[in-house]
Structure formats: C-alpha cells, structure tokens
C-alpha cells in the first residue's frame, strides 16, 4: 500500500490549513471584506475539478502527488471557517481588551490569547482538515492515474478491483487500515472535536 505514504504526506499541510483558518477568522473581526471570501469558499470541488483538470494539465502536474498538496486546502476551508467563526465568537471581547490594557500588541494578542484560547477549535479544524484530506476521493481520482502515485482511497478502488473480480477480503482489510488513522486521532481528541464543531451551534 505505497499509496498510504503519499496521503500521509498531505497531513502536515492540512494542519497548516487549519492554522490559516483561524487567522482568517480574526480578520473577520476587523474587516468585512474577508466575508466576500466566504462566498467563494462555498464553491464545491465537484464544480471545480474540470477547470482544475485543465489548469493542472497545463502546469504539467497531472499524476503528481504534489498537486493534491496544492489542492487539498480548498477542500476543508469552508467547514474549518465555520468551526473557527463559531469558536472565535465565543471568546468575549473583554479578553482582548484586557490584553490590550495589559500592554499586548495585536500580534501578541493573537499569539498569546486567541490561539491558546481557541485551541480546541483549531484542533477540531485540523482534525477535520486531516480527515477530509485523508478521505478525499474526487481530486485524486481525477488527477492521479498511476499506481505509484495513487493515494489510499483510490488505490483500494482501482488496484483491488480488477474487472469483475472482487478481492473482498483484501478490500475490507485495506478499508480498515484506511479508516484506522482518522478514527485513532478522533478517539483521542474527540472532546476537542465535538467542542469545536458545536461552539458555533449554540450561537447560531
């Protein structure tokens, strides 16, 4: 299952997306312009994969794992944004005011107050981003075609199903292996995840 390594390589990227997210959220406090970004975020990948196919082709990146690293951030962005908005809105504004009076600059407030306080949300967003990246199906299916570049999800579907012969045992074993990492992570961080998901719910 060489494909597993390829998709694992995506993971750090994913957490970076998570961190980009919260910065975006902070911006929302200051500038409404960032909101227009949100409309765009809502355009789903299933609408974009065809033009992206052309673009990726032009760039010569077809069948290159790095194309996923480039594209995956767009997958998780809408939901991560949602999570983080909910989370940041649950931080009382007195907290930044207190920090302001205590003498913190804006970058300091972000680093020392916001990020630690919103950590559960950031973790939730990161888990989500990872899960999405790990389980992504459409982009790899469209842009990777050779076995040595395929990620796990595609690998299973493509390599283990040959014509009408289904190696069910192997397929299921692969599925379990594929599902294990997200479930493991999730088991340990479940509470963060749920807290992050629902922080916005009670506000909504």
């Amino acid at each position: 299952m060489t494909s597993a390594t390829a998709s694992a390589g995506v993971m750090p990227r994913k957490s970076k997306v998570g961190s980009l997210e919260r910065q975006n959220r902070w911006a929302l406090r200051g500038s409404f312009a960032a909101l227009s970004v949100f409309v765009v975020i809502l355009v789903p990948p299933s609408l974009l994969f065809i033009p992206l196919f052309q673009i990726v082709g032009t760039l010569g990146l077809i069948n290159n794992t790095w194309v996923l690293v480039l594209l995956f951030p767009t997958l998780a962005v809408p939901f991560c944004t949602w999570i983080m908005i909910g989370y940041f809105s649950s931080i009382p504004k007195e907290l930044d005011e207190a920090a302001l009076i205590d003498g913190a600059s804006y970058p300091q407030i972000l680093l020392k107050i916001f990020i630690p306080v919103a950590l559960p949300g950031i973790i939730a967003a990161t888990i989500f981003a990872f899960t999405v990246g790990w389980g992504a199906f459409l982009y790899p299916l469209a842009y990777l075609y050779s076995a040595d570049q395929a990620v796990l999800t595609i690998g299973i579907v493509r390599e283990l199903i040959r014509g009408d012969v289904f190696a069910w045992g192997t397929i299921m074993a692969a599925c379990v292996m594929g599902a294990a990492p997200p479930i493991l992570i999730y088991t340990f961080l479940m509470d963060y995840y749920v807290a992050g998901l629902t922080a916005g719910a009670t506000k909504g």
Binding site: A27, V43, L110
Partner: peptide, 28 residues
C-alpha cells in the same frame, strides 16, 4: 493597524482562494 494586521494574516488564504477557486470558476 489592526485591520491591516488582519488583512495580512488573511493574505495567504485569499491568494490560495483566488488561484484555486475564483480563477477556476471563471475558467469553467
């Protein structure tokens, strides 16, 4: 300065979105 900071922090994301969302939409 506050909103500038915010905008700056947003910049990578905005860039990403413009390249991988806005442009492809119009290209589509």
């Amino acid at each position: 300065r506050r909103s500038t900071t915010a905008l700056l922090l947003c910049a990578p994301l905005i860039l990403l979105i413009v390249c991988l969302k806005v442009y492809p939409t119009f290209y589509a």
